[in-house]
Simulated assay, not measured.
Amino acid sequence: MASHRSLIRRTAALATAATATVVLAACGSSSDSPSSSASGHSGHDMGAMSSASPSASASVAQGSHNAQDVMFAQGMIPHHRQAVAMADLAPSRAKSQQVKDLAAKIKQAQAPEINTMSGWLKAWGEKVPDDSMSGMKSMPGMDHSGSSMSGMMSDDDMNKLKDLSGDAFDKAFLQMMISHHQGAIEMAKTEQAKGTYGPATTMAKSIITSQSAEITEMNKMLGKQ
Rank of each mutant, 00 (worst) to 15 (best):
D163T: 07
A204L: 06
A168G: 04
N159S: 15
A200E: 08
D156W: 10
E186N: 02
E186T: 12
A188H: 06
Q192H: 11
Y197D: 07
K189P: 02
F173A: 03
D156R: 15
M203Y: 04
A168W: 05
G195K: 14
D163V: 00
K171D: 10
M187I: 04
A204Q: 01
A200S: 13
K194N: 15
A188W: 03
A172V: 03
I185S: 04
T190G: 11
D155K: 10
M187G: 07
P199Q: 05
K160Q: 07
M158E: 01
F173T: 10
D170T: 10
F169Y: 04
N159F: 06
H180A: 09
D156G: 14
G198K: 15
I178H: 01
A188D: 09
D167I: 10
S179W: 03
D167K: 13
Y197H: 13
K194I: 00
S179R: 01
E191C: 13
F173D: 07
Y197M: 06
M176L: 08
E186G: 03
K162T: 06
A168P: 07
K171I: 11
L174K: 00
T196C: 02
G166P: 02
A172D: 12
A204R: 02
I178A: 00
I178K: 03
E191I: 12
E191G: 09
L161K: 03
Q182I: 05
F173S: 09
A168C: 00
L161G: 00
D155V: 09
H181N: 01
Q192E: 14
H180S: 04
T202W: 00
G166C: 08
K194F: 09
M177I: 01
D170K: 12
A193F: 11
A184M: 07
M203D: 12
G198R: 03
T201L: 01
T190M: 15
I178C: 08
L174A: 11
F173Q: 07
T190S: 15
G166V: 09
D170R: 08
M177L: 10
